[in-house]
């Protein structure tokens, strides 16, 4: 019975094949032709691109090809890190004719960074925003800013009631100013959300992104309760003379489109003992930065002597950014 069915199936097929033979040959020929055209066309396009230099010089291309296959930063050995840094520096030399220095300094075990913002002292000058944009090589075309200053009316404390888009003489009567940026949470929801572990919390408290590992799914952006993260929707454009040459692999090195980035407490500066660009730029001294583990630091003085609060504390994210009033 089974054999009969099988044979009947076979006969059907043969009938089909015979009646369709002329059509089948034409179809086969068409498919063959189309495939070979596609391959030839693809080869021509690639060759044309290479010839025109659209892919850059072949050395830069080869370096970028190697960069594509590199592993996650945390899994790299020191030698691999040095190799990727030298590749990136070489690519910058070839493609932008620029000498940059990419640092890979690790965290110090004695340090846990903390930040305090004096709401009484901020006058809304936005010098911090400008300094941050310059220091961290942020895209000028889309006006990306890690810091956002909110103009708040007296009587409310939550920035979602404030105006982040003001542009007039400051300070305005009856208003005060407060700035938000990534708060480097101690229990970061963005780290939990990332599907590729491209973002993590360093031992010194900074939440960093391995830009080349990020696939750009933007789940971390949905997970952040403070609007701390930015995405490169377009290829970043920075005027050549404004590019900061001293970079850190996890910090202000130049990103390409399609990756998520955020404030890193100026990791390229702070791991060398310097203040963040925003803290240094503030003319009124509204920003206090330091080591939370050092009992003599200014940040510890603020936490112990001032009335401090954090935003959205009820979410349990444990941000390391406090606000206080004089």
């Amino acid at each position: 019975m089974a054999q009969n069915i099988f044979r009947s199936v076979k006969i059907d097929k043969e009938d089909l094949m015979d009646s369709d033979k002329p059509k089948k040959i034409n179809r086969r020929a068409f498919i063959k032709g189309a495939a070979s055209t596609a391959i030839a066309g693809g080869a021509a396009v690639t060759a044309g691109c290479k010839g025109k230099g659209l892919l850059g010089s072949s050395e830069a291309f080869a370096l970028e090809f190697q960069e594509y296959f590199k592993t996650h930063y945390r899994l790299m050995t020191q030698i691999e890190r040095e190799k990727t840094v030298s590749r990136l520096e070489r690519i910058a030399r070839l493609k932008q004719d620029m000498d940059i220095k990419i640092d890979t300094t690790g965290p110090s075990e004695k340090v846990l960074y903390g930040y305090a913002f004096n709401v009484t002292r901020c006058e809304g000058y936005m010098e911090c925003v400008q300094a941050c944009v310059k220091e961290n090589n942020l895209d000028r075309k889309s006006n990306t800013q890690y810091i956002r200053i909110f103009e708040m009316e007296h009587g409310q404390m939550s920035p979602d009631q404030g105006d982040g888009k003001y542009f007039h003489m400051v300070p305005k009567e009856g208003h005060f100013y407060m700035g938000v940026q990534c708060f480097q949470c101690d229990n970061p929801p963005c780290v939990k959300a990332c599907p590729t572990k491209a973002t993590w919390k360093e031992p010194d408290g900074i939440v960093v992104v391995d830009y080349d590992w990020c696939i750009g799914c933007r789940y971390c952006m949905a997970a952040c309760p403070y609007w701390g993260r930015r995405f490169n929707w377009n290829q970043p454009q920075i005027p050549r003379e404004e590019i900061t040459r001293k970079q850190h692999y996890l910090g202000n090195r130049q990103r390409v489109r399609g990756m998520v980035e955020k404030c890193t407490f100026c990791i390229q500066r702070t791991r060398k003992g310097k203040l963040t660009a925003c803290a240094e730029a503030c003319p009124t001294g509204a920003r206090v930065f330091g080591n939370l583990l050092d009992p003599d630091s200014e940040i510890r003085f603020v936490l112990e002597n001032k009335k401090v609060y954090r935003l959205k504390e009820d979410l349990g994210t444990e941000p390391k950014f406090w606000y206080f009033i004089d």
Partner: peptide
């Protein structure tokens, strides 16, 4: 099509990439 860097999708594959 929504990914910023779709060519890096292999970062998700456990074994050759990292899956959180």
């Amino acid at each position: 099509v929504d990914l910023g860097r779709p060519l890096q999708f292999w970062h998700l594959v456990p074994g050759i990439g990292q899956l959180n």
